[in-house]
Design a protein around this nucleic acid. Sequence first.
DNA 1: CATTTGATGTTCT
DNA 2: GAACATCAAATGC
Length: 202
Amino acid sequence: MASNKLSRSFYQQEDVVKVARQLVGKVLCTQIDDDEMTSGIITETEAYCGRGDKACHASGGTRTDRTEIMYHAGGVAYVYLCYGIHHLFNVVTNVEDRADAVLIRAIEPLDGRELILERRKYQKINPALTAGPGRLTQALSITTDLDSTDLTGDTIWIEDRNVPNSVKELASAKRIGVEYAGEDAKRSWRFYPKNSKWVSKK
DNA sequence: CATTTGATGTTCT
DNA sequence: GAACATCAAATGC
């Protein structure tokens, strides 16, 4: 069966907010070492724009060792450590030097559910398992080791399986945890399916 | 229930 | 030394 893996041209679209919308309902997959493949339906995203968005790590065109990968052409992973504990996964978008990215905040488990439960030390499947940016990376075994990984490769990738969520009505809201960004904190650049349980916060 | 707090490490000033 | 795109456990109603 041919896989509908998202192509480089999908990630290189110029409107990062549009990409964030389109990613809801797509399927994020990881194949780590010799583990079984794990995946989940993306249920929550946030857009970060390199130009004119104070909430973005690369706002104002600042380049540091950490943010350098955000200036890469779209289609690579940006993974960083948050609060010393959590690995947060972003998709770099747009063409080279724009530094746009989409943060994946929540998924609904699909493939490899038993392995996901094991990684999270959970007994049952419920939203607390994978709804939250630090939770889903643990579930899919995404760490900063995977920073800069090419999303068209065989370690982390995103597929379009035309799952029902992809046609649900989307809700939007302010981004989480960016109060420091002043006026930019008010932008409604967070997206999730209306009525979905697999969302970190309403 | 809601709210607070402690854990934890890298980056940047 | 402060800040940080968070989470889970503990405490307060």
